[in-house]
Design a protein around this nucleic acid. Structure first.
Lengths: 335, 335
DNA sequence: TTGAAAGCGCTAACAA
DNA sequence: TTGTTAGCGCTTTCAA
């Protein structure tokens, strides 16, 4: 290879890898580099991996690439990692714990150096097992109950606080919450924040929390319909995310209720196009790309040997985007 | 390793790889497999790669994961490939030809066995170069002008045909087309189909084609505004994609025109949430996931050595989804 | 500062 | 049917 062009066997290796032990004389290094360029030489990453036991890539495990929150995060991750000379092996679990186990196993077998995981559920055994393993892992967006791994996410609690404060400021006293699926940490975080804010503001949400069984419009529609069928009155809904909010909107319309005149509505995530719904959706925006960037950076630091506690948590600021779906309540509760 | 547990050195390899030459006796195979299981043995993929010159992964190059057409395609790809024991290295070019060149180079250096590419532009030199390379490549959704590589995509032309036929059937005679960026094959395919359909139906679209400079709502808004500022009258718009359609909707509203009463509107792709716009958008749905599945399957066949011409093209059926944004024109053109 | 030699874990060829 | 030997392309001791 390049050696033939130069003169030496594996001195070339040292010449091309300045980080390696053993100083190289300037002229030698120049000769090697020239030869390498002339022959279009690229070191074989596979052979290098075999020797160094480092693969040069990390696994990125996502619950569902089709969930609009995920792609910007992956882009953030991917950009940082390529810059660091690391490639991303992508694995989509389809929100299925079994598939998650399978894919993580496969990823580890392929010797990925690290993992960035948005887990399928908050009780994932697969993810918990990672906490004890050798391979550095960072969670994004979705946490596990054990909190046994570092996490980068949006500060959903602050976003929910802002949302409830906004609604309360408009005069709402009876605010309902249609959550996402209970097996996700994001659902729990938002629910706890909702409960906290309600209590802090002296509101009362008894009978006004209902759980959606998925982050979909259909689940939102069903849950909201259930809410509307009860006797409890409310003038606003905090939805677990934007798709659930969309479902709520549909359920309200189906009940002949108008948004925001009869019921105000707040979503979560600021998904594409929610600004173009009728009414435009008030929602909590999370810095998706930055979450990805920070998660990847955190992983890179760990790969570089920086010691950090596994309970490291980075919550990036969220922002309440006020649009047309929230307004003061009418004097008498309508439903 | 497993050898110590069994008895033999590399017979184990044959035992675990039924495809390899050299028959193995049933008892031996059983012994080996038991030992492997007992010791939790997993063959090292890196060492195997070094020996076999196969890396076990392919590169997936996408223009922008944030473009809602892409994720379902990637999911389709990813599912098929994992099933085939192949991992996906993800690379997002951000629609930038330079970055595309960089990433493909990096991917090739890492010895991926094949590539699935949705290119940044229809004139991509990077992609054209792939046509002459050793590594099997399949294009998805976006073609290059040279047509030098196999392609799997939706049958956009048929979708556009159906859309124009639908509009003409409603009575529209003057139909405008707000295209996407001209450096994408999808734009050209849809434009050609538009022109063909217009001509075939004896319509006239002189002065009614305007180019958006990106697949964004902003580009659609600007292009539609430009269209509206002209003297040419029209009663319907075919948009290059749904985001452009959204921009058109905004431009119409800004001009005091109603959709569909004053101007009908058709999008492309059936992006999430367009059914919830006001009015719900009539659009051409493309089988995104199936496109991914078929592209991956095609690549796997090629990796397995099946010889196929590089001009293989698989166009999967599209479907016009009629919603509320299209209606018969009023008797007199309004704008 | 450089060269020589060994070996990462596996599989391909050849021999038994 | 199985064992032996060699070697994929690199990096890493160890010696010079």
């Amino acid at each position: 290879m390049a050696r033939r062009a130069g003169v030496n066997p594996a001195t070339a290796s040292r010449a091309l890898n300045p980080a390696l032990p053993g100083r190289i004389s300037a002229p030698t290094e120049r000769r090697v580099r020239e030869a390498a360029r002339a022959l279009g030489y690229r070191p074989d990453p596979v052979a290098r991996s075999l020797r160094t036991r480092r693969s040069g890539f990390v696994g990125v495990v996502v619950p569902d690439l089709t969930n609009p929150v995920i792609p910007p995060i992956v882009r953030g991750i991917e950009g940082v990692l390529w810059t660091a000379g690391i490639a991303c092996l992508l694995a989509d679990t389809d929100n299925d714990p079994e598939r998650e186990a399978l894919l993580v196993d496969e990823l580890l077998a392929r010797r990925c150096e690290g993992l960035i995981v948005s887990t399928a559920t908050r009780t994932s055994e697969t993810v918990n097992a990672l906490a004890g393993s050798e391979v550095p892992t960072v969670l994004v967006t979705r946490d596990v109950d054990t909190r046994s791994l570092p996490l980068v996410a949006g500060d959903d609690a602050a976003g929910v606080d802002a949302a409830i404060a906004h609604l309360a400021g408009l005069g709402h006293r009876r605010i309902a919450h249609v959550t996402g699926p209970r097996n996700l940490s994001t659902t729990i975080t938002r629910l706890r924040a909702f409960e906290g804010a309600v209590q802090r503001l002296g509101l009362n949400a008894f009978g006004l929390v209902v759980h959606g069984d998925a982050f979909t419009a259909g689940a939102g529609r069903r849950a909201a319909a259930q809410l509307l069928s009860r006797d409890d009155r409310f003038t606003a809904i905090l939805a677990g995310n934007d798709l659930i909010a969309l479902g709520c909107l549909e359920a309200l319309a189906a009940s002949g209720l108008r948004c925001p005149e009869d019921v105000s509505l707040v979503g979560h995530n600021d998904t594409p196009m929610v600004a173009s719904l009728r009414p435009p959706l008030t929602t909590v925006a999370i810095p998706q790309r930055r979450i990805g960037v920070q998660a990847a950076s955190m992983l890179v630091r760990r790969l570089d040997g920086e010691e950090s506690p596994n309970n490291e948590r980075l919550l990036l600021p969220t922002e309440l985007i006020v649009r047309g779906s929230t307004a003061p309540p009418r004097v008498t509760a309508p439903n």
